[in-house]
């Protein structure tokens, strides 16, 4: 990615890790997300699966949160609930002044449309739309979007705008997905294994795009990953185990995406 602007360490908004309970930098004084006692029980047939067993969590504006943990530990379930794709069985989840726990299907759709961006492991681009059109898909319905060109420029793909997904590499596809997610200027970007399907070199490009957005747009980032190396770019790292947050670590210093070891 020659010519892609990299961010100098000093440019980052703050080197302080946010403290539990709202401490730290003033830009994070108000939590963006507040989760209290969130439990999620799936019933599949006669089996009850307890995916979340009482999770408390707050995320702050401009924060990068990395969620680690084995499969089935509940991190994806929490992300889905935060993103309005799923509902908690008990507990409360708030996004600023929106109560997501009791929101209707219509309200959740509205919430996704206006406030949240998603990035998935398998990109989920629309194969029949070009890169530009995949982004335009969102800008057409958002209230204050950037232009697709701007969004694609942010992920360094301005020159690939007219390509269809089938004509792009995996990393490029994921960056289009990120451009699509951020084009609406979401307050929060939820990424589920964004680099899971990518090799290290491409993965770094994707992480760079994500951190750049966090810095330039003050977007709160929640990243689920199996790759422990990615924890180094986070402000805080949550480790999930058996439906609970087992450990929360605040990074004293954060690494550049390019320093992440795979």
């Amino acid at each position: 990615m020659a010519g892609h602007p990299t961010l100098a360490p000093g440019n980052r908004p703050d080197e302080d890790a946010p403290g539990r309970g709202g401490a730290g930098s003033d830009i994070r004084a108000e939590p963006v997300f507040t989760a209290h006692g969130v439990t999620k029980v799936y019933r599949s047939g006669e089996v009850e699966v307890h995916a979340l067993r009482g999770v408390d969590l707050e995320l702050y504006e401009g924060e990068i949160a990395v969620m680690l943990g084995p499969s089935g530990s509940g991190k994806s379930t929490l992300l889905n609930i935060m993103g309005g794709l799923d509902r908690a069985t008990a507990g409360t989840v708030r996004f600023r002044d929106h109560d997501l726990t009791n929101a209707s299907e219509r309200q959740l759709t509205r919430y996704r449309r206006d406030h949240v961006g998603f990035v998935f492991q398998f990109y989920n681009l629309i194969p029949s739309l070009t890169a530009w059109e995949n982004v335009a898909l969102v800008t057409e319905i958002a209230s204050d979007p950037m232009t697709p060109d701007e969004a694609l420029e942010l992920v360094g793909l301005k020159d690939r705008m007219t390509h269809f997904p089938a004509q792009l590499s995996g990393g490029e596809q994921q960056r289009v997905a990120i451009a699509r997610a951020i084009a609406k200027r979401p307050e929060v970007l939820l990424c589920d294994e964004p680099t899971g399907a990518l090799d290290s070199k491409t993965g770094i490009l994707v992480l760079e795009a994500l951190t750049r957005i966090n810095e330039e747009l003050k977007t709160t980032l929640a990243i689920i990953t199996h790759n422990a190396g990615i924890r180094q770019i986070a402000h805080r790292v949550f480790t999930f185990r058996d439906g609970r947050i087992a450990e929360t670590v605040t990074n004293a210093t954060r690494a550049q995406p390019s320093e992440v070891t795979w």
């Binding site: 794709l85 509205r110 629309i126 194969p127 699509r180």
Partner: peptide
């Protein structure tokens, strides 16, 4: 299904 689900996630209504 995948495309349509993506659209729902992006905030498109049913």
């Amino acid at each position: 299904a995948r495309e349509l689900a993506s659209l729902r996630v992006l905030g498109f209504t049913r």
